[in-house]
Design a protein around this nucleic acid. Structure first.
Lengths: 217, 217
DNA sequence: CTATGATTCAAACGTCTGTTTGAAACGGAC
DNA sequence: GTCCGTTTCAAACAGACGTTTGAATCATAG
């Protein structure tokens, strides 16, 4: 147990400590496999604190996501509105508007927020219906806006093919943030997915080329 | 060793029934969330049957994967060797050699094997280290061979960028088979990921275009 | 038939899970 | 000082989990 309390303000907020501990544990072990006992222990809090502050484990899960997702989505929409949809690199601009806020979240908090990116990627494939629906409800509006923008840029593309391609884009993005650690290990350090700039530099051209591929016969 | 088969009596093999039940439940709820009690109940078997036939839950998981993976990987390698790596569509050929065996597995068993594709996609992102390592150990050789083939086709591509792009390919593929049901629902039936031909028709051009994109500066 | 090995079965094991409880400790207002 | 709402705490709850056990059942060979 290496939890250190800041000397002056000590543990200002048990609530926040629980969210941090849950976020990191969720991203390491998954949501289901993270027990409240492990979470409260890492947070240096009592087991019952979760139910006092969040009502239930599901309430905690919800709070973990919405704490990060609200500012994240605002930033995404802000960047999307700044895109020039008529430019040659419009696709790249839009992809960057969606991706870079998530990948660059690590600026604010040294380690805590990288966890969230991995957690997001994993939650996207979570078998649990509840988690998936909660997530969709939280980012549904953003997805709709980005879908519309890309649909306009690629305008002669049939709707069916657009949806398929966005599905592939979502898969590549989710997998990259969820399993970045695997790529780093498997490439023996040649690839460094923990570097947001490197990840964007490789991911955006790949996805843009796929999105712009000639219509299939 | 192997029991004498008696094709007349009811459930020919409890072992096989357990594998089928586990496969479908794993793909629906995930591995962790599928209890032995739920599995044995769906299989119409006794709870202790799992430990009698497989020794433990982990043994069952291993058996579920290797039952499908062995023939699947053989077919992939057979198709890979039939590819013309100098052809214009060499990338498409290789992608097809890797993808189509998994997507077309549904031929043999009507429903049971579609479950396996979803399970494969999900297991690829599973937080559990044990599952991921077991899977990598089972398909490691195949991945190596396909990586080498694609590296040769895209030959001037730097190793770092090749690995990044293969990471994206893996993510798009995994997500597509794991969450095909989500795409079908979200597109209101416009996309039909349960149709292997349609999935291949859209996935291969997208991935090939991404793989062939100009080298990033 | 009996004997033998393979398979099934109901019941229990100890451990872990999310949740609840009621009392203890806190901190500012009067 | 007392009071009161907020927060923490140790302890226990009922249920689900993977696993084990020992006896019952089955099919076949001698």
């Amino acid at each position: 147990m290496t939890e250190t309390l800041s000397p002056t303000t000590e543990q200002v907020d048990t609530r926040e400590a629980l969210l941090d501990a849950a976020e990191s544990l969720f991203s390491e072990l998954g949501i289901q496999a993270s027990s409240l006992r492990a979470i409260t222990q890492r947070a240096g809090a009592n087991l019952a604190a979760v139910h006092y502050h969040f009502g239930s484990k599901e309430g905690l899960v919800r709070a973990v996501f919405s704490r990060r997702l609200k500012p994240l989505n605002e930033q995404r929409l802000r960047l999307l509105e700044a895109c020039d949809l008529t430019a040659d690199d419009a696709v790249e601009q839009v992809l960057n508007a969606f991706l870079s806020p998530l990948l660059r979240m690590s600026r604010e908090t040294p380690e805590g927020v990288r966890d969230f990116a991995r957690l997001m990627g994993r939650a996207y494939m979570e078998p649990s219906e509840e988690v998936r629906e909660m997530l969709l409800e939280e980012i549904g509006e953003v997805v709709r806006r980005f879908t519309e923008a890309l649909g306009r840029i690629l305008s002669p593309l049939p709707g069916q093919e657009l949806l398929w391609r966005l599905h592939f884009v979502a898969g590549a993005m989710g997998h990259t943030v969820a399993c970045s650690h695997a790529l780093e290990k498997h490439s023996h350090g040649l690839c460094q997915p923990s570097n947001p700039d490197e990840a964007l530099r490789f991911m955006i051209p790949f996805l843009a080329a796929g999105l712009r591929a000639g219509t299939t016969p």
